[in-house]
Amino acid sequence: MLAAVYHGQRDVRVQEWPDPPPPAAGEIQLRVLQASICGTDVDEFTSGPHLIPLTTAHPASGHAGPLVLGHEMVGRVVAVGAEVTGFTTGDVVVPGSGVSCGTCRWCRAGRTNLCAAYYTVGLHVDGGLAERVNVPARISRSIGDCPADAAIMAQPLAVALHAVRGTGAEPGTKVAVIGLGGIGSLVVAACTARGIETIGVDVSAARLKVAERSGCSLLIDASRQDAVTAIRRATGGDGADIIIETSGVPQGLETAMKAVSRGGHIRLVGLHRDPSPLNLTRLVLDEIRMSTSKVHICDQDLPEALALLTEHPQITATSLDAVIGLEDVVPAGLMRMAAGAAAGKVVVKP
């Protein structure tokens, strides 16, 4: 089969790759209908490997060496392994990205995204930027009444919903979203669907346009104006009650620290590779809460994402930048996203 295979930094090859074996017990095999490229994939491409186990076997998945990228996908079931219930050939499903053991103390507490043996499809084992892929049935959900073209946003939307849920945001809360890429724009869409107004901050005019279409009530172009001043002006001088930081760059965290209100909440979603200084004194004296958000909890966030996309399928169209073929993953996908030229999600149709 044809697949987009990660071999190292700036080295992703669309090549012939072995078909996945028949699904093992508890697995289903999907013919991939659509997959999309995540910012994490771009990060691995431009400066990795950070998460991909090229030389040493991953402790949970056991994989080492080149692997097929892709942890956001929609597929049709073409084979079912032993001990699988609830799925049959022909079903269209969305898998969650993270695989958890189900038995460790974090899994027993419902925090499967913190599983002691956690690994990610498309980062620690072959993923969905290919014609076929095997995934655990327990992390997969039928798309139900959700249109297949809309369901491609279910996994990243689940990430956004997990981030928003952890803030306790409600209508009337002053929320700012810093970084309006793939996840940031979906955070805006998730807030909009819940009746929560947002302030969006980015340096890209194209991404700001996507956030506007997603329902953002105030847009701040940080390349043209001081974002801290603009956020404080928009909130009567108090600052935002909640700031969701998805950019993963030091400037984003610095803006969040200066623009959050007393007693406010900063939620970190973006992965910060570079050192980021924190004003711990202000955190203490103004009782500012800082929390982090990792991926999603499959049982909770993925069904909610599919329900939201069923009710609001326009979220996908709003968040979409381009649909490309698998052969164009590097030039029209990874490289274009790395250059900041993509305004939303890039979807791949194998």
Rank of each mutant, 00 (worst) to 15 (best):
Q29G: 13
E212Q: 15
L161V: 12
S140V: 09
R224H: 11
D241S: 13
V77I: 15
Q155I: 03
C38N: 07
T85F: 02
S276T: 15
S319T: 09
I243F: 04
A227C: 08
G236N: 09
V175H: 00
K345E: 00
V269T: 10
V12L: 12
G248N: 00
P49L: 04
A151W: 03
R232S: 08
V14L: 08
N279M: 05
V201G: 00
P49V: 04
A189V: 04
V125K: 05
V347K: 01
L320E: 05
A259E: 03
G172D: 13
A240S: 05
L285N: 11
P66R: 13
Q34R: 14
T88W: 02
S61T: 08
V80L: 09
L123Y: 09
G248C: 06
D11C: 11
R207G: 05
T46E: 13
H272G: 03
A339P: 10
H7C: 10
D321P: 01
C216L: 12
V133G: 10
G144A: 11
P21H: 06
G96F: 04
T229S: 15
P21G: 05
I220Q: 03
R289M: 11
V84C: 13
V68C: 08
T173Q: 06
V175N: 00
T246Y: 00
S97A: 15
E131S: 10
L208A: 01
T235D: 10
V348N: 07
G325R: 07
A163K: 03
I288E: 06
P22Y: 11
M290N: 03
S97C: 13
T167Y: 04
T316F: 02
V133N: 09
A4D: 10
A317R: 15
G340F: 01
P18M: 09
V42E: 01
E212T: 03
A158M: 08
D126C: 02
A117E: 15
V32I: 15
P53W: 01
P277I: 08
R31H: 08
L283Y: 07
V42W: 00
H50V: 11
L30I: 14
G62S: 04
L309S: 00
E72F: 06
C38H: 01
